[in-house]
């Protein structure tokens, strides 16, 4: 088996067998059902006025701004800071440092994709069950929104990994990640121009695709996300390559 494939399996297995990952999968499946049930069956009048597609996007927003970033912070802390603490970050196996780093990053990104797809599936099933009207187009729209949301979440993953590698304590890693993430939401109120530089500002970039934005703006945003990922990935690898057990 190719080394990259082999270790991607390993890192995925390490994450999937953890209780916290199973809990997040459970949340991805249950939250859309709970929200739809509350909105449609318990007659919350303010929400009743919204089209069901807006509710779907609100659920997705909840995941991409709160639940999935939290999972990213936990996973990055476990695979990097935690392993460094336990002395298992580097292994005596035929795998290079870059492959080890790449596969750890890929494993978190793959689980995020699964979480997004599970959320989408749950949204669709709950829409069929609880919404008064369900359109096939909303199925494709919400799928596209979920897939597009993956891109800024990968950027956030690469940034979280840099932070995870900078500190030596899991508690410090996760608390500093949460603090910085909250700071990213506060900073634009104080310095509005900073907003365009923060990865948190692009978490809901899927909305740009549905708001008739110019293609130039979309390309510009995508390029910014890709370059941010490259910057964080290379910074993270630089720190990782200097690590010693």
């Amino acid at each position: 088996m190719n080394t990259i494939v082999a270790n991607s399996y390993n890192e995925l297995q390490k994450l999937v067998t953890r209780r916290v990952t199973k809990l997040f999968f459970g949340v991805a499946l249950s939250i859309p059902f709970i929200v739809k049930l509350v909105v449609n069956k318990l007659f919350i009048t303010d929400w009743m006025a919204l089209p069901s597609e807006n509710i779907n996007f609100s659920i997705l927003d909840l995941f991409i701004t709160i639940i999935l970033p939290l999972f990213i912070f936990i996973a990055a802390t476990y695979l990097f800071t935690g392993e460094s603490e336990r002395g298992t970050l580097l292994i005596v196996r035929p795998i290079s440092r870059i492959e080890l780093y790449l596969t750890k990053t890929a494993a978190i990104s793959i689980i995020i994709m699964f979480q997004l797809l599970m959320t989408w599936l749950s949204i669709i099933i709950s829409s069929v069950l609880f919404d008064q009207s369900f359109h096939f187009s909303s199925l494709l729209t919400s799928l596209a929104a979920s897939l597009l949301s993956w891109v800024p979440l990968i950027v956030l993953t690469s940034l979280a990994i840099v932070l995870a590698l900078l500190v030596n304590s899991s508690v410090l890693a996760i608390s500093s990640m949460i603090f910085l993430y909250l700071l990213m939401f506060v900073l634009p109120y104080l310095f509005p121009n900073v907003m365009y530089l923060l990865p948190s500002s692009y978490l809901d970039w899927y909305m740009q695709w549905f708001r008739n934005m110019s293609i130039q703006w979309l390309i510009q945003t995508f390029t910014y996300l890709c370059s941010s990922f490259a910057l964080y990935f290379c910074t993270g690898y630089f720190i990782f390559s200097k690590k010693e057990v």
Binding site: Y9, N10, Q13, K14, T17, T88, I91, V92, R93
Partner: peptide
Amino acid sequence: IGALIGAMAVAENMTPYQNLKMSARF
């Protein structure tokens, strides 16, 4: 090369069989 230096297990929340299977993938 086979080595035992410091930490013994890749993932302690898994069984020895699972851990060795992970190593065997290389």
